[in-house]
Simulated assay, not measured.
Amino acid sequence: MSLSSQSNQLPESEKSVSTEKRILPDKHTSLRLQIWETPLMRPDSSVLDAFAWEEVMCRRVGAGHLPVAHIWRHPDAFVAGLRDRRLPRAVEAMERIRGEGTAVCVRPSGGAAVPLNPGVVNVSLILPNPGHAINIHDDFREMASIIAESLIPWTTQAETGEVQGAFCPGDYDVSVGGLKFCGIAQRRQAKAYIITAFIIVEDQGDRLASEVRRFYEEASGGVAKGYPEVKLGTMASLQELAGVPSSAAYTASLVRTLRRRYPYAEIERVLSVGTDEVLLTAEQMKLRYD
């Protein structure tokens, strides 16, 4: 199986003159879609279970299963990127976080370190790709458009473009007033792919940024370069930016947006991640990436 992972950081040759722009709704599509919402995961659950479930579903979508939207949250986790894991003291930094009672994993998709809590909504689109086509711009624009449309009850000011100093940086950061609340990444298999995003709905952006900055200070050993230089004053929650009252309120708007965007979407289902195939995949991912 051919696998690849990409963040929303595009190659120089693919960047437009100005990546920052107001997000406009895309055309509706006739694609059938299943919407799955995982209840808030247990505090003692492995955050890898959610990524493993998506990996399993990506294989199934590649084999003909209906495309999937997956919405989930974890009460307390720290998700590192593949490049983060290669920092000289990454293992020690992750062990320190685990020792504080936070679940830790290295995710298979692109992107860099992100802290998760009940105020951070994760959403993934799992779509078929039988022709092996790659159009990174279209994929990220589609996800950014869905996220922005879901925010319309509170604001229409969402934009894309890298926010310098924000964690998990990329050309398709989604921001309001220059402050980032969302990052997008991608994971590809042979016949299907996953576009995934984190959306900070509640909490304080500076508090989360401080967590990520501390991780990089420790993981780099004070020597290594090539990791995001996280600065305060670059991240914010939708609660801070637009008065979104709760993760539940934004999630409900997100589901409504998906149903409008995909008129043939099936009623959302409640997911149980504890199947044997998912648990086996999670263990394989842990061995491969952690």
Rank of each mutant, 00 (worst) to 15 (best):
M1K: 07
S2N: 13
L3K: 15
S4W: 12
S5M: 14
S13H: 15
S13D: 14
K15N: 04
S18I: 05
S18G: 08
E20R: 13
D26F: 09
K27I: 02
K27D: 10
K27Y: 12
S30V: 01
L31Q: 12
I35K: 09
L40W: 00
P43N: 05
D49F: 13
A52S: 10
A52Q: 08
E55T: 05
M57H: 03
R60F: 00
V61A: 05
G64K: 04
G64R: 07
H65N: 06
H65G: 10
H65Q: 10
L66F: 02
V68G: 03
W72Q: 02
D76W: 04
A77E: 02
F78Y: 06
G81D: 08
R86C: 03
L87K: 12
R89C: 15
A90K: 05
A93P: 13
A93R: 01
E95T: 14
R96E: 15
I97N: 11
E100D: 15
C105R: 12
V106N: 07
G111C: 11
L116M: 14
P118L: 00
V121K: 09
V123T: 12
V123W: 00
L125M: 12
I126S: 04
P128E: 09
P130S: 08
G131W: 07
A133M: 06
D138E: 15
D138R: 13
D138C: 06
A144D: 05
A148F: 05
E149D: 12
S150K: 01
P153M: 12
P153Y: 12
W154Q: 03
T156W: 00
Q157L: 09
V163W: 03
F167D: 04
F167C: 11
P169V: 04
P169N: 02
D171I: 01
D171H: 11
Y172F: 13
F181N: 10
A190F: 04
T196Y: 12
F198P: 01
I200D: 01
Q204L: 06
G205W: 06
D206W: 07
E211G: 08
F215M: 03
E217N: 14
E218M: 14
E218A: 14
V223I: 13
V223R: 14
V223N: 12
A224I: 08
A224F: 04
K225C: 09
E229S: 11
K231F: 08
L232G: 14
A236S: 06
E240C: 03
L241G: 02
L241Y: 15
V244F: 09
V244W: 04
P245V: 11
A249Q: 10
T251F: 01
S253R: 01
S253K: 02
R259M: 11
R261L: 10
R261K: 10
Y262T: 00
Y262V: 03
S272H: 12
S272D: 14
V273L: 13
Q284A: 14
Q284F: 08
K286G: 15
R288E: 10
Y289K: 12
D290P: 00
